[in-house]
Every structure is written in C-alpha cells, then in structure tokens.
Design a protein around this nucleic acid. Structure first.
Length: 106
DNA sequence: CAAATGACATTCT
DNA sequence: TAGAATGCCATTT
C-alpha cells in the first residue's frame, strides 16, 4: 500500500459531474502539500475506468494533464456536465473530501 | 542512500 | 493579470 494506491482509492470517491483538485486530494490523504505526489500517482495510474483521474484538475480548474490527453479529459468532464473552457473545468463543481461525506470510523 | 522527476500550489516580480 | 521562481511530497533510478 502506498500513497499512490490511496490516490486511486480517493479518485474513485469523486462523484460524477464533479471535479476535485490535487491539493484537496493531497489534503484528504493527509499531506496538503503532496499535491505533486498526487499528480504523480495519477500519472503512473493504470488510467483504467476504475480511476476517474479525469475528474482531477489543478487548483484553478486547469486540466494540467491526462494519460489519454487533455482533449479526452475535457471531453469526459463536459460529458459529465462539467463546463470545460480554455482547458479549465468549472470549479463551481469542485468536490471536496470533507468529513461531511467522508466515512466516519463508525 | 542520494539524486532526479513530475498530471501541483503558492508567492513574488 | 501573466510569468518566473521556490517549496513540498512520493516514487523511481
């Protein structure tokens, strides 16, 4: 189990039609400054449909990158209802891994 | 073990 | 506002 693996798990928690940022994600993983590491994880990720890494964008909603290409990423987001303009996703749909939706230790 | 890499974020100019 | 530089973290060589 590594940070990368956790990134995938978290990625899968991102609901459709919503987008998140590497920073929020890193924060949810325990390291608010590991945004870079998060992106690194997505990069080496099997990009399989199991990991909707296409819902992860930069702090400004910028489609920093995608294994299949930003074109693909933008297309998927738009298809989910996320407005993507100028390689930017609508942050108004930004999703956060707040405890509100986080599984509490029962 | 140390150095290099990378889909970031923040701050300063 | 846009662009450049710095810091930070995890993984890989």
């Amino acid at each position: 189990m590594t940070f990368t693996d956790r990134c995938y798990e978290l990625c899968r928690k991102i609901p459709p039609g919503r987008v998140t940022t590497y920073g929020e994600m890193a924060k949810a993983l325990g390291s608010p400054k590991a945004s870079r590491a998060v992106g690194n994880a997505m990069r080496t990720n099997p990009d399989a449909p199991r990991t909707p890494c296409h819902r992860v964008v930069g702090s400004s909603g910028k489609l920093t990158g995608y294994a299949f290409g930003l074109e693909r990423k933008a297309a998927l987001l738009r298809d989910e209802g996320v407005a993507v303009v100028n390689d930017r996703a609508d942050l108004s749909k930004l999703f956060r891994f707040d405890k509100t939706n986080a599984p509490r230790r029962a």
